[in-house]
């Protein structure tokens, strides 16, 4: 078990390195010009000499490999970054300095991250139980009108483009009917109540949208599990309906659902662009989107790195959870 985790962590580390190399390569071999971006962020007039000066001091003229090493080293030790004549200290873990605000990217992420994390966790708390319960009920009532209603309505919600769902619920529930307050992010540590009320609508919308897939997926998994011999055995033992369904059928049906959840949760942690955008929550999704438009490379590379880390961690967590749920799974 321990050896397995160590090996998986090493493999995960390699995935993260590969991701950062890929992002670096895409940026530097693409039509990018950081000097131009940095210069335009400060003044409207950018003579070519100033652009060249910025590129020179940022090290953009060095070989890509060297730049990558400098960047990677800065992650662990911190480094100084020169913008023309000014030098900015970037403490470890240094992910670079924003070309626009000249703040360390790690600071920006620290600022933005709690909002994204709050969105992801709150939505997951809604969609996972909701999807699994709806799916299990539909599976239990398979072939009845309850089942058809559930499958049909989840399909309808699933087929609405997400941005439309988010926009419409914002328009009606907040602006026209005023059922929900204006969505906003308030740190949980400062005011838990404001945190909940500000994020409630985004949670519900995101949760509803995700729950449809989980309902359909859990239903399929549960239908299969209900036809297993061991569920028949459980009934033959004279266990109550509830114990048969939850302890015997659902416990087995949940395993494949967890796999999907691991991947979905990782992608939620990487930012939910539409949700953040529509509900005006300053998370890293919107930030990443903006930095792509602005060619703000340090933020792009940092976001890619974080996504890679989450995918690796969530996958490992899922595999460990597997072995906890299913004793036949041996992590070796």
């Amino acid at each position: 078990m321990f050896g397995y985790i160590v090996r998986r962590l090493i493999a995960g580390f390699l995935v993260i390195v590969a991701t950062s190399v890929a992002v670096f390569a895409l940026f530097f071999y693409g039509p990018s010009n950081p000097g131009q971006v940095v210069c335009q962020a400060t003044s409207p007039r950018c003579p070519p000499e100033r652009v060249a000066d910025y590129n020179q001091t940022l090290g953009y003229n060095d070989p890509v490999t060297e730049q990558y090493v400098v960047w990677a080293k800065g992650l662990f030790t911190g480094r100084d970054i020169q913008f023309g004549s000014t030098t900015i200290d970037c403490p470890a873990p240094c992910l670079g300095i924003s070309y626009y605000t000249r703040e360390p990217v790690s600071e920006l992420l620290k600022e933005r991250y709690p909002a994204t994390l709050s969105l992801a966790v709150g939505a997951a708390i809604i969609f996972l139980p909701l999807g699994v319960v709806l799916g299990s009920v539909a599976a239990r009532k398979r072939g009845t009108s309850t089942d058809r209603l559930m499958v049909g309505s989840s399909l309808i919600i699933y087929s609405i483009p997400y941005y439309l769902l988010a926009l419409m619920s914002y328009l009606y529930l907040v602006i026209i009917w005023g059922i929900f307050p204006q969505p906003e992010y308030n740190p949980f540590t400062e005011n838990p109540w404001a945190w909940v009320s500000g994020l409630l609508l985004p949670w519900l919308v995101l949760g509803l949208a995700f729950s449809t897939q989980y309902a359909r997926f859990s239903r399929g998994s549960m239908v299969e599990s209900l036809s297993e011999d061991y569920v028949r055995t459980a009934r033959a033992k004279g266990l109550t309906q509830r114990v048969v369904l939850i302890k015997h059928a659902l416990r087995a049906a949940i395993v494949p659902v967890i796999t999907i959840f691991g991947l979905d949760f990782a992608s939620l942690l990487a930012g939910t662009v539409f949700t953040e955008f529509v509900f005006n929550i300053d998370g890293i999704g919107v930030q990443a989107l903006n930095s792509i438009q602005d060619q703000n490379f340090p933020i792009i590379s940092a976001t890619a790195l974080i996504v890679a880390v989450f995918v690796v961690v969530c996958n490992l967590a899922v595999d460990i959870l597997y072995s906890v749920i299913d004793p036949r799974v041996r992590l070796t």
Binding site: E228, D229, Y230, R232, T233, A234, A236, H248, R251, A252, I325, D326, P327, R328
Partner: peptide, 11 residues
Amino acid sequence: FQDALAALHPF
């Protein structure tokens, strides 16, 4: 039941 591996709960 016939197939005890399938008929006993694996978990």
